[in-house]
Amino acid sequence: MEVLGVGIALLTMFVGFGLLIGILFGFFGMGGSFLVTPALIVMGYPTRVAVGSGLAFVFGTSIIGALRHRSLGQVDYTLAALMTVSVTAGIEVGKRGVFALESLGLADTVVSIAYIGLLGAVGAFILVDSRRKSNEESSDTADDQVGLFSRIRVPPMIDLTGGPSISVWVIFAVGLVVGVLAGFLGVGGGFLLMPAMMYGFGVPAAVAVGTDILQITISGGVGSLLYAQSGGVDLSIVVPLLAGSALGARIGAAATKLVDEDAITGYFAVMLLLGAVAVGVRQAGNYLGIEMLQVVSLVIIVGAALFVSGAVVTLSLRELRAVRTSTPQSNTD
């Protein structure tokens, strides 16, 4: 039996995989194309279809995630708009850098090394920081919300959700740098935007995730439209994946209200570090001509996604149980 031209077994697998990715996406504001595209390539889909369908899936999932975060009051629209403009401009500059490297025959090597280095460095920094914060039992939460760029007071200044006041010029500059890196690496930039907003601007983790997802909705929509024009979007992939991720994104977004902020950043860091390992293994496979390493890379990514999403759900249920025990009549989201 087939639905949408796809067998029931494959359809069920897509829905389950979507659920898993949805939880991570709703919780971290990243992980969509990062997980889906390599999985589809390993399953034998052409790269164009894998990338295009991955983008369309990210677009759909991010709409649901953004709506959910909006209902939880975790989206800063001004910041999302400013970041979208600056990141888009930056992506164009980054792409030109890749084309220049391509003409020198160095693009693949340089981009791969930069990707692994950046994922690893950002992941290690966030992991160390979240460990430090959880060890400081008497840490001052007000101090934790002061962003790295809060001291730059070049007008006009805007007040962001969660309290911080940041110069518009600083937001543009950070968005531009993130955009250049995203365009250079060929990624959406979610894993760069979330820490940039948290550490750079001092925005709370949940708001950084919500705002990041709204920005991804816009870029994902434009990207999937471009790929759809060349036949790169396959609805038989996108529809079942989205059916699962729509539920997962609700669970992930609700979990950001329950799970401790340090735990969010800690798990985010683990995802990035395992992502760096997976990309490293895949590149080693390409370099050495060992196809098996592509599968190993995918197993690391899917295994990490399973582990982290499982941990998110378990921690959320534990928190929910604790909240209900202390206030039995409270209505938790």
Partner: peptide, 9 residues
């Protein structure tokens, strides 16, 4: 196509 994804979402 993209509209269908939006409607489904």
């Amino acid at each position: 196509l993209v509209g269908l994804v939006l409607v489904e979402a």
